[in-house]
Design a protein around this nucleic acid. Sequence first.
DNA 1: TATTGTTATACTCTATAACTATA
DNA 2: TATAGTTATAGAGTATAACAATA
Lengths: 127, 127
Amino acid sequence: MAQVMFFRDFNRELSDLEITPAIFGVLEILHQNKGLTQTRLALAIGLDRSSLVPLLDKLQKRKVVEREVSTKDRRSNHLHLTAEGEQLLVEAERRVRLHEKRIQVRLTKSETRHLIQLLMKLAKSNV
Amino acid sequence: MAQVMFFRDFNRELSDLEITPAIFGVLEILHQNKGLTQTRLALAIGLDRSSLVPLLDKLQKRKVVEREVSTKDRRSNHLHLTAEGEQLLVEAERRVRLHEKRIQVRLTKSETRHLIQLLMKLAKSNV
DNA sequence: TATTGTTATACTCTATAACTATA
DNA sequence: TATAGTTATAGAGTATAACAATA
């Protein structure tokens, strides 16, 4: 139930930017790993590389992401955010902070801290 | 990340029963609300009533669920689990307990209790 | 008129397999 | 031979709109 609420609120806050959780992930990863290759990005977000193609096509058409053929290995594309893409990420991060604030308001600071700590403990347990 | 881990583990434990989280929800709800109508079940699990039809078709073919035309309102179907369905639910619940145990083992009893309490607090905040 | 279950249809997201161009 | 990106295709899972039967 917490999860459903979380996604509903996330989507409400970011839907007008046309950013899904998956796209937000792509933006974050490309911001922090400029020049990443498609196969490596696919691996990072847990998608098959073929599934990434239409997603990148969309983002490229939106002028958010650019593919640049590698000069070292002409089979690979180096990906990076455009200026517009960086700007979109900044706005998306602002919205995500609003989304997180709205969620955290129901918990005290120490409850929030504790929740995150417990979830991280769970996430680390790769059973 | 906690969520991804949770779903992966759930699916690993229940995949050979061919039970998805959605199906588990249907079984639980029908067990506790015998004779529920399709529209009401759809509402309960947050699906459109048209989306429920193929799911019920599958479960009916598996002899897990039965549709019974209402004698009071012949437009409606009353749904209930077959004996086989009840048995499947019992086994599924056993598996879910294993799944939950495996997850909880990384937390102490009081941490588990606290986590559930915090998530419920979040879930209630229908922002 | 309104509602229940159903169908036809379409859209999104994902994977697998096969292709091409490089390496 | 092997790899990167792409394409064709298919399968879930979902929704919307329209329909027949019934209320």
